[in-house]
Design a protein around this nucleic acid. Structure first.
Lengths: 152, 152
DNA sequence: TTGTTATTGAGAATCAATTACAATAAGAAA
DNA sequence: TTTCTTATTGTAATTGATTCTCAATAACAA
C-alpha cells in the first residue's frame, strides 16, 4: 500500500475515475523526479522520457489536483507565478529555503516549528489543513554577488 | 520619520522618481486599511474613497513594487492567484492563518520561530531576505460545516 | 515659465491555469 | 469478446491577474 499507483488506483475506484496510461505516466515521472518541480518542468521531462507519447499539458493540469487530493502530492509554494510541487509520500512536514538568484531549493524540517504551529492552532481554535513556509534569500554560492544594500 | 509619505518622499528623491498625487492616494489608502488586502480590494476602496479621481489599476500595479522596496509594504502570501499585502511599518515579523472558507486572516507572532529560522539560516549559510509562512485551514466559525473527511 | 522626462490612463499583450468540445478509450455489463 | 456508457484525452480557445506599450500629461529642476 506504499506504491503511488496503487494508492491512486484506490482513489480512482472510490471516485468513479478511470486509470489511464497518461495518469500513470504522470505519476511515474513525478516519483522519478524525487524533488521539487513545476508543471512546465514535469511536462518537459515527460516529453523527454516518453518521446513517442503525446501527453498534453492539459492532462497534467487536470491530473495534479487529483494527486493532491489522493495525498500523493503537495503544492509547497508558488514561485513567481509557478506552483511548485513535491511528493507527499514518506516525507515529513518540512520547510523550504529558496535562493532568489539561482533558484536552488533547500529543505529543513523542524519538529519545534510543528509544535509551535499546533499550539497556535489550539489557542486560536484553528483547524489547520496545510501550511506553506518558505524562506527567500541567497544561498552560499550566490552570496558573493550580493549588493551591499541587499543586506539588512 | 515615521510618516509613510515622508519615507516615500525620501525613496523617490534618492531614486530619481516623482511624488505624484496618485502615489499619495495609494499610500493613504493602504495605511487607512490597516490590514491585509489584494490589488483588487485596494483599487475598489480607492474608487469609493476618491470618486472624482480616476486612478487606474495600472498605477497601483506600478506603485506597489516601489512601496515594497521602500520598506512600506510587504507581500505576505499569495492567495489563489491574488497577491496579499500588508503594511510593513511598525509591525513585527509575524505569521498568518487563513481560513479557506470565509477568507478571514488571523495573525500570530512567534519569536521562537524567528529564532529557529535564524539558526537554520546560519547552519545552511543562507542569507534570508524575507519569508512567507501561512497556515491554511478552518477558523472557529467555519468548523461547523467541516465535512468529516476534512479532519485528519 | 520652460524643458526634460517620469508618470499617467487606456488598452493591448503576456502567461499560467482552466475550460469547451469532439474524438477516443476505460471498464462494466452483456 | 463485443457493446455501451461516459470519463478522459488533445487541441484550441478562454480566463484572469499582472505587465507592457504608447501617446498625453504633469513634476520639478533650471
Amino acid at each position: 500500500m506504499k506504491d503511488p499507483k496503487e494508492i491512486f488506483n484506490c482513489y480512482c475506484k472510490s471516485h468513479g475515475m478511470r486509470c489511464t496510461p497518461e495518469r500513470y505516466i504522470i505519476i511515474d515521472e513525478i516519483f522519478r523526479i524525487r524533488g521539487h518541480f513545476n508543471i512546465d518542468e514535469l511536462y518537459l521531462r515527460i516529453r523527454k522520457d516518453y518521446p513517442h507519447k503525446k501527453l498534453s499539458k492539459g492532462s497534467i493540469y487536470r491530473t495534479i489536483p487529483h494527486l493532491v487530493k489522493a495525498g500523493l502530492l503537495r503544492e509547497c509554494f508558488i514561485d513567481q507565478g509557478h506552483s511548485c510541487y513535491e511528493s507527499a509520500l514518506g516525507a515529513h512536514h518540512h520547510e523550504h529555503l529558496k535562493c532568489v538568484r539561482c533558484g536552488k531549493i533547500l529543505e529543513f524540517s523542524s519538529p519545534r516549528i510543528n509544535t509551535i504551529e499546533k499550539n497556535i492552532c489550539k489557542k486560536l481554535k484553528f483547524h489547520m489543513i496545510e501550511h506553506s513556509h518558505v524562506l527567500l534569500g541567497y544561498c552560499v554560492d550566490c552570496q558573493a554577488d550580493l549588493p551591499k544594500k541587499g543586506v539588512s
